[in-house]
Amino acid sequence: MRERRFMQVDVFSSSAFKGNPLAVVVDGEGLSDAQMQAFARWTNLSETTFLLPTTQPGADYRLRIFTPSNELPFAGHPTLGTCHAWLQSGGKPQREGIVIQECAKGLVPIRVDYSNAAAPLAFAAPSSTRKPFTEEQLAAVLAAMGLQRDEIVDCALLDNGPLFWALLLRDPDRVMELVPDSSALYAIRAEVGFAAKYAPQNDALIGRSSREARAFERSAADDASDIEVRVFFNATTTAVEDPITGSFNASFAQWMIDAGHIEAPYVAAQGTCIDRDGRVHVSRDAQGQVWIGGASHTLIQGKVTL
């Protein structure tokens, strides 16, 4: 065991302590799989990452991502948070303005633009596959979430490493009200993300809910949100709501934009129901690449004996 640089980073919020926390072991070289998993279990955060020397040409750093129970090939807030930690620890990218991250999913480009305070870092959303599903499978998911079929505008089963059910609802207020049946969600082993868009700015206010009305009254601030997102995991018989989920927002954005449900750029809010203030900034470049950005803050910095 030896001392290793360690950071804890808050990701996807402009307000410290309102985002998604991430543990980063900056000097991860020499640790075994079992040691990494044990430390991730001990931190008890949704993800813990380990920075390692690269194995692929062109990569600036390599990371491995662990939940308390298993390793992930890719995840969104660990990607932004680890890049933030690497840069804060003195990392220098080979190309100005672009960091190339190596992970089990492959090489992931991350744009660096500190002039954009709301989203100084943004990762290129990795390819996402849309999996086939049956109406019977969908019915089980809807039942677990307490939803009726006619409340759903569209749905998809999305895979960009993690596998998510994605449900687009008609009403933002309904998104905020939902309480899943934890046992039912666990029984079908489903990770579910759902969202609804705020009403268009040019619609009439008459008859709109208070949440929709606030959508019209929002200022033009960088973190004003266009869509409300919630994500539930089924790791135990008690469903866990994720504060902000970069991987879901990445595959969800690709699907929503391709299906014509929303145009980029847009801002997704997440974590509202659990007292977080997540903001995920989604853009799409001229080549069609979707980028997922947000703010990060270093809240703990020191050494860990590992």
Rank of each mutant, 00 (worst) to 15 (best):
D10C: 10
D10F: 07
V24F: 03
G30M: 08
F39R: 13
E47R: 05
T48L: 10
P53S: 11
Q56L: 13
Q56D: 00
G81R: 12
G81Q: 10
L87N: 06
P93H: 06
R95T: 12
I98S: 00
V108Y: 04
L121N: 07
A122P: 06
F123K: 05
S128M: 09
T129Q: 13
T129K: 14
R130C: 10
E136S: 14
E136R: 13
E136D: 13
L138W: 01
L142Q: 04
G146S: 07
Q148A: 12
D150Y: 10
D150S: 13
L157Y: 07
D159C: 03
N160S: 15
L169F: 02
R170E: 02
P172W: 01
Q201E: 00
G207P: 03
R208W: 03
R208Y: 00
E212Y: 00
D222Q: 14
R230L: 08
T237G: 12
A239F: 12
I244E: 04
T245Y: 07
F248A: 09
N249E: 09
W255Y: 08
E263H: 11
Q270D: 13
R279Y: 05
H281E: 00
S283Q: 09
R284D: 01
R284H: 06
D285G: 08
D285Q: 10
A286C: 01
G288R: 06
K303L: 08
